[in-house]
């Protein structure tokens, strides 16, 4: 564990809690892509199957369970409890365009051709692109509430910090994981455009982020 890794985990947790609290307090999931949240729940489910096979640490187990629980709670709020506020008409990203290549790639490029390894690889590849329905929705409507942009900021920050963590681990432990690194870099690149808009628009005091 290093400071980048811990900060990355914390910002990931902060992002998820921001989103959950926003939906819970406003009793609305307007502007939130339910599809992205389902994909993230799928990411956690397929990656954390190792909860049943290996024990790493109490921290590791607790965080995995928390991420799983919070992601399912978010999906529940969007599709069940506050489904009347869900903007399904704007959440029109074709998820199969992500799932089919990701499934195919995880069968082709993995560390071992076993169900758990393929599912782990699938979760890494899927996480890299899971935010696309949300970014697509913002592009389509041309705006996002500031709290939604704070969520995206922390989610992007988490990924950027993980890259710093990998650089650190490479230098201190001579260890690196190519599948995780390539996917992590791809995922971070998706956020670059958003980061630019976040700093130039949201943090300059406007309530909403509007696209030009």
């Amino acid at each position: 564990m290093n400071v980048f890794r811990l900060a990355g985990d914390v910002s990931h947790l902060v992002a998820i809690i921001i989103l959950l609290l926003k939906i819970w307090r406003s009793k609305s999931c307007a502007g939130i892509s339910g599809k992205s949240q389902v994909l993230f729940a799928l990411v956690f489910t397929t990656r954390y199957l190792d909860l049943f096979t290996v024990f790493i640490s109490v921290y590791n187990t607790v965080m995995k369970v928390v991420f799983l629980a919070l992601s399912y709670a978010t999906v529940y709020l969007i599709y069940m409890r506050f489904r009347n506020s869900y903007n399904s008409e704007n959440d029109t990203f074709r998820v199969e365009f992500l799932l089919v290549p990701v499934i195919g790639l995880s069968f082709l490029e993995n560390y071992a051709f076993t169900p758990l390894e393929i599912l782990w690889t699938f979760s890494i590849f899927l996480e890299a692109v899971a935010i696309m329905p949300q970014l697509f929705m913002i592009t389509k409507t041309g705006e996002a509430e500031s709290i939604t942009t704070h969520y995206l900021f922390f989610l992007g920050l988490y990924r950027a910090l993980y890259i710093a963590n990998w650089v650190w681990r490479y230098h201190t432990e001579s260890f690196y994981d190519l599948i995780a690194i390539v996917s992590g870099v791809v995922q971070t690149i998706f956020f670059c455009d958003f980061f630019y808009l976040y700093f130039t628009r949201v943090l300059r005091g406007r309530g909403k982020m509007t696209l030009p």
Binding site: I56, N60, M63, K64, F175, D177, A180
Partner: peptide, 10 residues
Amino acid sequence: EYNVFKHDEL
């Protein structure tokens, strides 16, 4: 070889 990295990171 067992890869603990992937199970350690979240």
